[in-house]
Simulated assay, not measured.
Amino acid sequence: MLYWWSKYVLLGPLLRLFCRPTIEGLEHIPEAGPAILASNHLAVVDSFFLPLLVPRRITFLAKREYFIEPGLTGWLKKQFFTGVGQVPVDRSGGSAARDAMDTAVRLLRAGRLLGIYPEGTRSPDGRLYKGKTGVARMALEAQVPVIPVAMIGTDQVNPIGSRMWRPRPVHVRIGEPLDFSRYGGMQGDRFIERSMTDEIMYALMELSGQTYVDLYAASVKEKAAAPAPPKTRDPFRLPDTKAG
């Protein structure tokens, strides 16, 4: 009920009014049954436009922190993220990664349409970054197809660091499903999972037109956020002298 209310009554009409979103390739999404929608990730609003434009309900795995913030603001955030179809998972590492995987597989085996961002985080500069292999393992364990989805223009609506959304056109391009049934029973093979993930990322590159970078986006962000090393004095440089 809350999902329907957000999509058709609250947020959906505003997004349609200000951004005039369009979509192509809807015929590639099955009317029923499980599948993974693997999308590039340019902005927070990616998770709002895709459910708005796809008739079927999409479930995203979201950070648990979005759902447990205290106070009225925390309650509102919880209601909002639940309303747009997000399910909380602990992504802090260790056993949490396995728990997130189990949640995804459970949803897929229940016939759900699962949305995921193989890059793991938003692109820091609009380019497409190396995908993480979790999406491949999900597909193999649940035995489902992966449908590539390109979000175009969402980074203009919601640039990184901006608090206000801007009225800009958004387009969603959905590609043909990728069938990995030939690798059935091979989950856990890191070479197979990397090959599958690279195939998914290549499809996303073709759909989105983005430049591909063979690095993890999270690593690039961490490097950019790290403090610059202190400057060291060149021992062979003569000291500056003042005239006079």
Rank of each mutant, 00 (worst) to 15 (best):
Y202R: 11
G185L: 08
F180P: 00
T197K: 08
M186G: 00
M201V: 04
G188Q: 09
Y202P: 00
E176Y: 03
F191D: 12
D179A: 09
G175H: 08
F180H: 10
L204S: 09
A228Y: 00
S208M: 07
L215Y: 05
L215D: 14
G184Y: 04
I200D: 03
F180S: 04
R190V: 03
G184M: 02
A224N: 12
G188R: 12
A218K: 13
A217L: 08
T211R: 14
F180Q: 09
P229R: 14
F191E: 14
S208F: 07
A226L: 11
S181D: 07
Y183K: 05
Y183D: 01
L215G: 02
F191L: 09
M201F: 10
A217E: 08
D214F: 01
S195C: 03
A225E: 15
V220K: 13
A217K: 09
L207K: 06
G188E: 11
Y183I: 01
S195A: 11
S195F: 00
Y183G: 00
M201Q: 09
E193C: 00
F191I: 04
A226V: 05
L207G: 04
D214E: 13
M205A: 13
T211A: 13
S219Y: 08
E206Y: 01
E206G: 03
M196A: 04
L178K: 06
A228M: 11
I192T: 10
L207S: 01
Q187F: 11
T197P: 01
R190M: 02
K221D: 00
F180R: 09
R194F: 00
T211S: 10
E176Q: 12
T232F: 08
L207P: 01
P177E: 15
T232I: 11
D198S: 09
Q187D: 12
F180G: 02
P227N: 13
I200W: 06
M186R: 15
K231H: 10
A203I: 05
K223A: 15
Q210N: 08
R190D: 02
G188Y: 09
G188D: 07
G184L: 02
G185T: 07
Y216E: 10
Y202E: 12
E176L: 01
A228N: 05
M196W: 04
V220S: 12
L215H: 15
D179G: 07
A203N: 06
L204G: 05
G184W: 06
A226K: 12
Y202M: 07
Y212K: 05
E206Q: 14
L178C: 03
E193W: 04
A224K: 13
S219G: 10
L215W: 06
E222S: 14
M186Q: 15
F180D: 08
E193H: 05
A224D: 13
T211P: 04
